[in-house]
C-alpha cells in the first residue's frame, strides 16, 4: 500500500532513550492531589510545631502553677493554656490517626477506582503503558510521598508528645490507644496500607465509591488487627500484686487476671462490678490470692512499634500483590509479564 506514496520522514517522532516518562505523566494527572497532600502535611506539621513549642511550654507552666497551689481553694493558674493544649493535642491526634484513612479513601476512589470506572486507566494501557507498569507507577510515587509526609508528621508528633511527657499532668500515656500509633512508624505503615488497599479495592471494584468503601474497610481491619496483635509481638513482663492491693495498670497490657493459691493465672470471672461482695465471693471460689498483669513497660515501645510496623507492611504488601494479581488476570498480562521476567 505504501508503494504509491513516499512515506514522510519521521522527523516529527522524537526518539527518547528509556521508557515512558512516568513521573511527568503522574504529576500531570494528580497535581491537585499533590497540592492537597502538601497542604495537609504543612497544616498538621505547623500545628504540631505549635503544640511542641509554645503550647507545651505554656501548659507546663500552668501545671507548675496549679501543683504549687497544693489544693488551696483560691489559687490562680493559667487554665486556658491547659485547655488549649488539650484541645489542640486532641484534634491533632485525631487528624494524624485519620491520615491513613484519608490516603485509603483517595487511593481507592481517585487514584484507582475512578480511573478504572471512567476508562482512563484503559486509555493509559492503550498508550504503551502496560497495566503492570501503570500499577507500579501509581503505587511507587505516591508511596514515596505518603511515607515522607506521614513520616514527618509522626516525627513531629513524637517530639511534641515527648516534650509534654512528665511536664503536663493530663498528657496522654504512651500506651493510649491513639497515641500508641500516632507516636511511631505504625502510622506510616497504616498509610501505606491505605494506599495498597486502595489499589486492591480499585482493581476489584472498578467503581469509585465501592472502591472507596472497600479501601477504608480494609485499612480499618488492618489497623484493628495490628492494634490487637501488638502486645503479643514482643515478650511481655509479668507483675503480680496481692489481692488487697487491687489490679494495677503499668503499661501496654497483653493479659491480666487473677493469681490463685496454687500460683495459677486465671481470667477474672464475670461478676457484677457494682456489687463488690458478689465479685469477692466469685474470687474466693477460685481461690484468688492476687492479681497478675502481663504488660509492656515504656522500654518495650520501639520493639513493639517495629514488629507491628513490619507486620502491617507485610499486610500492605499482600494487598499490593493482590492488586497486581487481579490486574494481570483481568487484562491477560500474566503471560507477557512472565515473558518479560524471563528475559
Amino acid at each position: 500500500m505504501t508503494t504509491l506514496t513516499t512515506p514522510s520522514p519521521s522527523a516529527t517522532a522524537h526518539r527518547d532513550s528509556g521508557g515512558p516518562r512516568l513521573l511527568s505523566w503522574l504529576l500531570r494527572l494528580h497535581r491537585p492531589a499533590l497540592w492537597a497532600w502538601t497542604a495537609l502535611v504543612l497544616v498538621l506539621g505547623a500545628g504540631l510545631l505549635w503544640l511542641w513549642g509554645p503550647l507545651t511550654d505554656a501548659a507546663a507552666a500552668a501545671w507548675r502553677q496549679y501543683n504549687a497551689c497544693d489544693m488551696r481553694p483560691r489559687c490562680a493558674y493559667d487554665q486556658p493554656a491547659i485547655l488549649l493544649y488539650k484541645d489542640v493535642e486532641h484534634y491533632i491526634t485525631l487528624a494524624v490517626t485519620a491520615v491513613p484513612f484519608l490516603v485509603a479513601a483517595w487511593a481507592g476512589a481517585a487514584l484507582f477506582g475512578r480511573e478504572l470506572e471512567s476508562g482512563t486507566a484503559q486509555l493509559a494501557w492503550a498508550q504503551s503503558l502496560s497495566p503492570t507498569r501503570w500499577l507500579t507507577a501509581k503505587l511507587a510515587f505516591p508511596a514515596v510521598l505518603v511515607t515522607a509526609g506521614t513520616g514527618l508528621l509522626v516525627c513531629l508528633y513524637h517530639l511534641a508528645w515527648s516534650a509534654g511527657r512528665g511536664r503536663i499532668d493530663t498528657a496522654r500515656s504512651w500506651y493510649d490507644s491513639l497515641v500508641l500509633h500516632t507516636n511511631g512508624p505504625t502510622t506510616v505503615a497504616f498509610a501505606l496500607t491505605g494506599l495498597a488497599a486502595g489499589a486492591l479495592a480499585g482493581v476489584l471494584c472498578r467503581r469509585t465509591f465501592p472502591a472507596l468503601a472497600l479501601a477504608l474497610g480494609l485499612t480499618a481491619v488492618v489497623r484493628a488487627v495490628a492494634h490487637l496483635a501488638m502486645p503479643h509481638l514482643w515478650p511481655s513482663v509479668t507483675h503480680t500484686v496481692d489481692r488487697s492491693e487491687g489490679p494495677v495498670v503499668l503499661g501496654l497490657e497483653a493479659d491480666s487476671g487473677l493469681v490463685t493459691s496454687t500460683g495459677a493465672h486465671v481470667p477474672v470471672p464475670r461478676c457484677d462490678a457494682m456489687d463488690p461482695g458478689g465479685c469477692s465471693a466469685a474470687y474466693d471460689r477460685l481461690g484468688a490470692v492476687g492479681y497478675y498483669t502481663e504488660y509492656h513497660p515504656f522500654s518495650h515501645y520501639w520493639p513493639l512499634q517495629l514488629t507491628t510496623t513490619a507486620l502491617v507492611l507485610v499486610l500492605a504488601g499482600l494487598f499490593a500483590l493482590g492488586a497486581f494479581w487481579v490486574l494481570r488476570r483481568t487484562t491477560g498480562t500474566a503471560r507477557a509479564a512472565a515473558k518479560a521476567g524471563a528475559v
Binding site: H14, G18, G19, S118, L123, Q127
Partner: peptide, 27 residues
Amino acid sequence: GKPLYPRLTVAETLRVGADLNPGTWDA
C-alpha cells in the same frame, strides 16, 4: 465512551501521549 482525563487541557492530553510513548510519538 472516548475516555480522557477531564481535568487536563487538550494540549496536556497530547503531552500525556508523548510521555507514555517516548520514541514513537508523532506530535
